[in-house]
Design a protein around this nucleic acid. Structure first.
Length: 109
DNA sequence: ATAATGACTGAAT
DNA sequence: AATTCAGCCATTA
């Protein structure tokens, strides 16, 4: 049995996240809004959580509304996400939040 | 069809 | 500033 085919919503999420360039980031709500589902932030998170390990989608460029890496269990995973972002030049404040003005992304630029 | 599940969010404590 | 609450939503059991 092949893995379950991605739902239409999931496909749209992946397509958009794939467009986020290195060193930039978007919030879950931001992704949802750009897709025309301003309230589906939570669903976006679920979608990224279901990505296969070999996916080419840069899921680590999606953080929460405050610019913080979303906490999760095991919390080790969050540390990895932050490391991936830092490797792209993203800087975090002492509070653990990235600067939207500096690293935020919009389809335009 | 119904209920349960989160990598969310903004408001309220 | 740190937590809790309640609303929201696509997906899955």
């Amino acid at each position: 049995m092949p893995p379950r085919a991605p739902t239409p919503f999931a496909r749209r999420v992946r397509a958009l996240v794939r467009r986020i360039p290195p060193g930039r980031a978007l919030s879950y709500g931001g992704v949802a809004a750009l897709l025309g589902h301003p309230r589906a932030a939570r669903a976006v998170g679920n979608t990224l959580a279901s990505l296969p390990d070999d996916s080419d989608v840069p899921w680590w460029r999606v953080v929460d509304a405050r610019g913080r890496v979303a906490p999760r269990r095991p919390d080790h995973a969050a540390a990895i996400q932050r490391a991936l972002l830092e490797a792209e030049g993203v800087t975090f404040s002492a509070a653990g939040t990235l600067d939207w003005a500096r690293h935020g992304w919009t389809p335009d630029g």
